[in-house]
Amino acid sequence: MSAGPTGEIYRIDWLPGTDVLHGTCHCGREHTSQDPIEMWEWMLAHPQGHEPLSHEPQGTSS
Rank of each mutant, 00 (worst) to 15 (best):
residue 15 L to P: 00
residue 1 M to V: 10
residue 5 P to G: 05
residue 44 L to P: 05
residue 41 E to T: 14
residue 18 T to K: 13
residue 47 P to D: 10
residue 10 Y to A: 04
residue 20 V to Y: 01
residue 12 I to D: 00
residue 27 C to Y: 04
residue 2 S to K: 15
residue 31 H to Y: 14
residue 39 M to I: 04
residue 3 A to N: 09
residue 26 H to T: 10
residue 60 T to S: 07
residue 41 E to I: 13
residue 49 G to A: 02
residue 51 E to K: 11
residue 44 L to R: 07
residue 55 H to P: 00
residue 61 S to Y: 11
residue 26 H to Q: 13
residue 19 D to K: 08
residue 24 T to L: 08
residue 14 W to E: 09
residue 28 G to D: 09
residue 56 E to F: 08
residue 37 I to Q: 15
residue 5 P to N: 10
residue 28 G to P: 06
residue 19 D to S: 04
residue 35 D to S: 15
residue 53 L to P: 04
residue 32 T to I: 07
residue 4 G to Q: 03
residue 52 P to C: 13
residue 9 I to M: 13
residue 22 H to W: 03
residue 36 P to E: 08
residue 44 L to T: 11
residue 19 D to P: 00
residue 30 E to W: 00
residue 23 G to M: 12
residue 19 D to C: 03
residue 8 E to N: 09
residue 6 T to I: 11
residue 20 V to M: 06
residue 56 E to D: 07
residue 62 S to F: 03
residue 62 S to G: 09
residue 61 S to R: 15
residue 43 M to P: 05
residue 24 T to F: 01
residue 28 G to Y: 10
residue 29 R to C: 13
residue 53 L to N: 13
residue 42 W to G: 01
residue 24 T to V: 14
residue 59 G to M: 08
residue 51 E to H: 10
residue 13 D to A: 09
residue 29 R to M: 15
residue 35 D to P: 03
residue 18 T to C: 02
